[in-house]
């Protein structure tokens, strides 16, 4: 039983239509809260982990262990004066952060979250083509960045937007092809092989073991999509001030910032679902969600470590990495997956 059904059973006295409508609204609010809290935890985790790596203390003043620091930061950002650039293109400028952030939140709705003891199945929405849906949303987010870059009427913002689009496009393709390999292998076992949940539940071994090359390509592409170092030339501070978010202040800047951490969290959850078994694990019928979360956070920490120890790659070399190395590798992976599925009958 999913959350939706659970809420509906409480509200069933309102009748079918009104009950479901209310249940959907409440569910969306729960989703928003979940994403916000997990992003705040992610930022806190990042700052503490970064401080640990850099032999500092990190946030430690507001609340116990600085736990309330992020809430204070968010309130500060929300309370700041909003400064609009004079020659902005009004609509794209204002809409861009919301495109990025709400696209991200939407993608979270289609992830299967697994079970958690008394709450049952935590998955919010089912779809038979959830993989396609998630990747469709992921390709909407660069549009938000382009809108921000063009709408700001700023050279740095424009160049940052162009760079991040070049990066997103060149890593999108290897990413999709490595997912295709998984869909191919899953289709041998399930009829709904585009459904993320049925891929995870029907697997015998985690796909990361069967095709480590796919895991490698997907993980790198995921870090690149999330604009993490060494692929953060979109907002490289020493060259382009802050890239496409240069002209943003206050809450809108906060949304971009959250988008940065949200993408890495979403990507880590995707990697753990697709390649590392997701919510599978010992007693997964009771604590599947915990397994998913643990795997996701470990992957996030790995990406943080990469961020903290790598300088930026030059943009032309980055595009080379995407098209000349990752793409051929992902094709090889696709062929291997085909051999595994058809030849060996895995």
């Amino acid at each position: 039983m999913s959350i939706l059904q659970w809420i509906y059973s409480v509200l069933s006295f309102l009748g079918h239509d009104v009950g479901y409508a209310l249940a959907y609204i409440i569910e969306s609010i729960i989703l928003l809260i979940f994403v916000s809290i997990s992003l705040i935890v992610m930022v806190y985790l990042f700052r503490k982990y970064m401080a640990r790596v850099q032999q500092r203390i990190g946030p430690n003043r507001v609340g116990k262990f600085g736990l309330l620091q992020l809430i204070a930061d968010a309130l500060k950002l929300a309370g700041k004066e909003v400064i609009f650039p004079k020659e902005r293109d009004d609509l794209p400028y204002k809409v861009a952060p919301f495109v990025v952030f709400f696209g991200l939140v939407l993608a979270f709705a289609f992830l299967p979250y697994g079970n958690l003891s008394i709450f049952g199945d935590l998955t919010i929405t089912y779809s038979d083509v959830s993989i396609i849906f998630i990747f469709a949303i992921l390709s909407i987010m660069p549009i938000g960045e382009v809108l921000a870059g063009i709408g700001s009427h700023n050279k740095y913002a424009l160049m940052g937007a162009l760079r991040s689009v070049a990066k997103d496009v060149s890593f999108e393709v290897p990413m999709m092809i490595s997912v295709l390999a998984i869909v191919m292998m899953a289709s041998a076992r399930t009829a709904t092989s585009l459904n993320l949940e049925s891929i995870v539940t029907t697997e015998i071994l985690p796909y990361g073991i069967l095709e480590p090359i796919g895991l490698f390509v997907f993980f790198i592409a995921m870090i690149a999509r999330a604009s993490y170092a060494p692929f953060d030339m979109g907002e490289s501070d020493s060259e382009l001030v802050s890239g496409y978010s240069t002209e943003y202040t206050g809450l809108r800047f906060g949304l971009f910032y959250m988008g940065l951490f949200g993408t890495i969290f979403l990507g880590s959850l995707l990697v753990s679902l697709l390649y590392l078994g997701g919510f599978n694990g010992p007693i997964s019928s009771q604590v599947g969600f915990i397994w998913l979360l643990v795997k996701g956070i470990v992957l996030v920490l790995i990406s943080f470590t990469v961020w903290l120890s790598m300088p930026r790659i030059r943009i032309d070399k980055l595009v080379n990495v995407g098209w000349k190395y990752l793409l051929p590798i992902s094709f090889i992976n696709l062929v291997l997956a085909g051999v595994l599925t058809l030849g060996l009958g895995w």
Partner: peptide, 16 residues
């Protein structure tokens, strides 16, 4: 120099 290249961590080691 690390900061110029986008590398954050050595900065703190050096300043320490």
């Amino acid at each position: 120099y690390g900061l110029d290249l986008g590398m954050l961590t050595p900065f703190f080691y050096c300043f320490g």
